Amino acid sequence: MAFSSISAGKRARQPELEADYNRSPALGYEPSAEVGFIRCLDHGFPTPLARWHCHDEYELHMIVATSGKAFVGDWIGPFEPGHVVLCGPRLPHNWISTDVPEEGIEKRDLVIQFLHAPIENASRLIPELGELMPLLERARHGVEFFGFAEAGERHWHRVKAAKGMRRLTAFIDLMADLARWNDYRLLSSVQMQGADNDAELDQINAIVSRITENVAQSMTAGDFAAELGMSESRFSRFFRRATGNTYTDFVNQVRINRACQLLMGTDRYVTNICYDVGFNNVANFNRRFRELKGLTPTEFRRQAESRFGGSAAEAAKGR
């Protein structure tokens, strides 16, 4: 089974979209004809599956061997055995092991993939399933769960061993535990925390959409306050209650996350990206970037190239 190779050039920076024709049982996938919307997978490293890619399914990813560097959206960080992450649909990701013996590792990853629509549709008729929706919303940005590895492995083996209705019940048991797990962090981008009522939610969603769709726009908190007929102090309280961030911090996060996308997906100069995302000077951009990501934009781009792994990383260095 052949995967498309990643060559040097701008297109190599984009995640590969994984589809059913990529999913060979020879690589560890369960045959499509034998599973429903919940699919189990385990594999070693190196493998063609370890690449910068995305897919339409959610993916619960558990590392059981080796350590290295993980790439989830615009987040870059270390991993080791016990690392558990839930990625949402179309969120690019890759795990690159750096301590693999010459003969490779037979089993590094335990994975469960599942689709959104069956859960969302069922939740309209089964209110209890609504408990999963906040978890699935968080997964759009990637969620790392701390201290869940032992329970996660037990759940994975139960799901893997079950078929039909028993697989569904084992899967729901796993998801219920994840939905109630409080020790986690979001990995990529900012996350809404909700609002007090539907009208406020509509207002805050409209504001957030304008900020994220026009990152270089210089709208201030005072501008939005005037539009909503609020004082600036009242708007600031309203915005922080709804998003968990001050207006300025939120805008900076959105701009830095957009900068990460440009650093990973284009060859534009860092200076140009600074102005593209709405910062007025490079020094402030570099300072804010380091505060949020722990490294400079140039260092981030250099590290991000290794998300492809192997020869692709070497090809990226040659650009």
Rank of each mutant, 00 (worst) to 15 (best):
S189R: 15
Q14S: 13
F238R: 07
E227F: 03
L91T: 09
V190E: 14
G147C: 02
W95A: 13
G265S: 06
N22W: 04
Q14E: 14
Y184P: 05
I38G: 06
F285E: 02
I207H: 04
I119H: 10
N272W: 05
L178M: 08
G68K: 05
L110E: 01
S218Q: 15
V35H: 01
S97A: 15
H83I: 07
I105P: 05
L129H: 06
Y269C: 11
T66R: 04
M230I: 04
Q14M: 14
K69T: 12
D42I: 00
G104C: 09
A216Y: 13
M230N: 07
A151K: 05
Q203I: 14
D109S: 14
W156N: 03
R287V: 03
W95N: 12
G310E: 00
R51P: 02
L17P: 03
L60D: 10
G44M: 00
N286P: 03
G309Y: 00
E137M: 09
G310M: 05
H53Y: 09
T246P: 11
M62T: 15
P15W: 07
S24C: 13
F224K: 06
L60Y: 05
T296F: 08
Y275V: 00
R158F: 03
M175D: 02
P78A: 14
A176R: 01
M175Q: 08
E16F: 11
F3I: 10
R241C: 08
G73T: 01
P127D: 10
V270W: 08
A50F: 08
G9T: 04
T47Y: 01
L125S: 12
I6K: 08
G222Y: 11
N272D: 07
C260R: 01
G147P: 02
L135H: 06
V159N: 01
H141S: 03
I273M: 02
A316G: 12
G142I: 01
N197L: 04
E153A: 15
R237W: 09
I38Q: 09
V251F: 00
E106H: 12
T271F: 12
Y21P: 00
M62Y: 10
R234I: 10
N22R: 12
L135M: 07
N205K: 15
T243A: 09
A70D: 04
D20Y: 10
P134F: 02
L201C: 08
F114M: 07
E18V: 15
A221T: 14
D173F: 06
A315R: 13
Y269P: 12
A179D: 00
A242L: 10
A226G: 06
L262D: 11
T66A: 15
R255C: 01
P297R: 02
I172D: 00
R258H: 11
T246I: 01
L201N: 09
A65N: 01
Y29M: 01
A161M: 08
Q191W: 06
C260I: 03
T220C: 05
A226T: 12
E120C: 00
H83C: 08
H157C: 13
G265E: 00
L91N: 00
R138C: 01
F37A: 11
R268L: 14
H116T: 14
L187M: 13
G88L: 08
A170E: 05
E102V: 14
P48Y: 06
